[in-house]
Design a protein around this nucleic acid. Structure first.
Lengths: 246, 246
DNA sequence: AAGTGGTCTAGACCACGTC
DNA sequence: ACGTGGTCTAGACCACTTG
């Protein structure tokens, strides 16, 4: 009985389909913490795939903290706290999902522009190079939480301005539609006060505390800047989490 | 020509031998940044292993930041900065020195106490366990920049209350006087407004933006909490820097 | 056209944990 | 004895980059 839970005709890799399938069951609570997951051989039979493919889905879930595995015993759902994405390069969408909130967006502004000044320097733009500007209000469980302004080098994602980003992750679009994987980012974080405009959009009082981040994101070579994003979060609702080492 | 660089009789996995072999060449500088690594097929032939095994060595090096890979091109040595301090666990003293500022401190409060509530939970205190509390104003080039309150588990550093912390790094003291090395920390960051007390101490207006961090620091086993520190930085003077990785 | 990394198969043997 | 995850093989086809 090969239940058709994966689509072998799809361009989406099989291991990825299986992985997302399981991740969804974990995040939705269908599979509870410390509950046993299907074994590699189970997945092999159920989906009609090879063991190495089933295995890859499980090992990636393990490395992302969704699952822990014990030799001779099985694979189990990890405790939620262990999968908190600390100090990882995540999109707003992933960040909210990790916190158990429903991410959303309302597009304020979307256009192709040319820019001058320091923004051009940080992105190391060639002269006249076009930038895709996307400004969105970001929602968590339908409440406005942040204003996010992304500047993307359009030469790496031509035509991206045609997509609707209301319910679409920018990073996921870069990966799926343009084959762009991100490598690392340099981020600064500071505290300031809400301007009249931001206060109105985020439904807080003018002068409320805000957490502002500026993120410069690079491709996997670690050197080519692709995005500069500025985000302003409601200080009363958002706490940033970081894991520090050594 | 199967050069005997890996030992197939060893209990050490083949992929791990190949991985460590390459990592050593990268760290020693035999392979320079952006230099091409052997392809998967090269490693296959050179070591007499299968491609999947060679592949695993390379993909793990990639996920650890030693290598970046590009489809159709090859695998390359990553820039050292990418694998260095992404988010370093640093003291205020080190942080200021990195920025080229002169660190300083004024001790506001220093005492041995017993605590209840959530602080006790976070530090996983045994009942009745003493905590060393140290509250200081932190200075940068002789200007007040932050208020820092540390709670240390006194059982790991008995007698620490005798030291003067005016011009002495707490972390440096733990290391030199008590042989305590820190492993990792979980830190949260949020924005809020200055209270009357904090505003006075830091010489700003009440209601100014402040960046507040709470850091739970663990020993090198990664499990034993030793310090809980809460810091409040002037929002107009301090910007936190973080490096994020995929 | 040749080489590269990305995905996938259908087997195999092993170490480990449970019954 | 049996099922589990850990390692490994020897192929295969694909998409992509470069000469």
């Amino acid at each position: 009985m090969k239940e058709a839970k994966v689509n072998k005709e799809s361009p989406v890799p099989l291991y990825y389909q299986v992985k997302e399938n399981l991740k969804e069951k974990i995040e939705s609570g269908v599979l509870e913490p410390n509950e046993r997951l299907p074994s590699e051989r189970d997945l092999e039979n159920k989906h009609g795939i090879s063991r190495m493919t089933a295995r890859r889905a499980l090992t990636e879930l393990e490395s992302e903290g969704y699952v822990y595995r014990e030799q001779g015993k099985g694979s189990y759902v990890a405790e939620p706290k262990l999968r908190q994405a600390l100090s990882k390069l995540t999109s707003f969408t992933e960040d909210m999902q990790d916190r158990g909130l429903e991410p959303g967006a309302e597009v304020l502004n979307k256009e192709l522009i040319t820019v001058e000044d320091q923004l051009s320097d940080k992105l190391m733009l060639q002269s006249g190079e076009k930038v895709f500007l996307l400004r969105r209000v970001r929602l968590a469980d339908n409440e406005p939480l942040a204003i996010e302004t992304s500047h993307l080098r359009n030469k790496f994602c031509p035509g991206i301005e045609e997509f609707d980003f209301k319910d679409r992750s920018l990073y996921e679009t870069l990966k799926r539609e343009f084959g762009i994987n991100l490598g690392r980012a340099e981020q600064s974080v500071e505290a300031n006060l809400a301007s009249k405009f931001k206060a109105d959009v985020l439904n807080v009082e003018k002068g409320s505390p805000m957490l502002t981040t500026e993120r410069l994101t690079f491709l996997t070579d670690g050197e080519t800047p692709i995005e500069l994003a500025r985000s302003t979060y409601r200080g009363d609702r958002y706490k940033m989490l970081v894991e520090l080492r050594r």
